[in-house]
Design a protein around this nucleic acid. Structure first.
Ligand SMILES: [Mn+2]
Ligand SMILES: [Mn+2]
Ligand SMILES: [Zn+2]
Ligand SMILES: [Zn+2]
Lengths: 139, 139
DNA sequence: ATAGATAATGCAATCCTATTGCATGCAATG
DNA sequence: CATTGCATGCAATAGGATTGCATTATCTAT
């Protein structure tokens, strides 16, 4: 486990318990957004509920963001910018592959401006693109 | 009930049963995307599962589209264009009000072009804007 | 119109994810 | 070391989505 895992937690104001370090370490190793079930099996036999609450805490503290890609299970990914308990500032596009079902953060794909009809005041938005990912289109 | 309900169903290749006409009629009267629970209470004591399967059929046949606005319950809205069993062609922005929780189709809000990273092949997308709707911002 | 074939409906049961309650464990603080 | 507050485990629940199966309605071809 990377030695700075503990530091990362402390910097976000999260008490670095063993469980939390394990979850963070696991999340850092993922190449795509991760559902609870994945963490459960990777961290077996860690308690499911503890993982659940750890993710809630992480989200609250700006360590991860939750993604609802329509698969039915919420997925989580490490925040890339300076998110904190104040709010998340890393709103970006997410890509969900129809073949491998993986959901990838696209932090460099800017979300375009929208011209909403009169009266609609936007606050935040979620943009999920579905299609085929590089890994799946190359074979 | 509008007399052309039956025609609408037939045109989409859906057998116009009593139940389906009721569901379609109810959907047509809605001013925002409708969750199962809403249909259940409006059509009470109609069977929940039958409504569920009716919506599945409608979606399959291009009569309605399903919207996952993150509320936990899928919402449904009448398709505005010539959708069919071939596919849905009315991809548009959906607005979810943080106050009244209603989800509105914005068929006239065009979804801008996206520059995805190399290798990502887009097929469809879901764009949910959250904020305050006209009804809620006016008071 | 009638009989067989096909599709729709009702009700029960189940699968899954998300969420809460409560008792216990642990760790920082003074 | 005692106090106190947060973290953890396990049980239980909530709620939406989905399936199985027997019954009923509808359609199609005599
Ligand atoms: Mn992301
Ligand atoms: Mn819509
Ligand atoms: Zn893929
Ligand atoms: Zn509103």
């Amino acid at each position: 486990m990377s030695p700075n895992i503990e530091t990362m937690l402390i910097e976000k104001g999260i008490q670095p318990t063993a469980m939390r370090m394990l979850v963070l370490d696991c999340l850092l190793k993922q190449s795509s957004a991760t559902p609870m079930t994945e963490l459960e099996s990777e961290l077996h036999p860690a308690d499911r509920i503890t993982i659940y609450r750890t993710l809630k805490t992480f989200e609250e503290k700006g360590m991860v963001h939750a993604i609802d890609d329509g698969s039915g299970a919420t997925k989580y990914a490490i925040c890339v910018e300076d998110c904190s308990t104040t709010g998340h500032h890393d709103l970006h596009v997410h890509f969900n592959c129809n073949i491998c079902k993986q959901t990838t953060c696209l932090p460099n794909t800017s979300v375009p401006e929208l011209k909403l009809p009169e009266g609609f005041v936007p606050a935040e938005l979620s943009l999920i693109v579905k299609g085929v990912c590089p890994g799946c289109s190359n074979r």
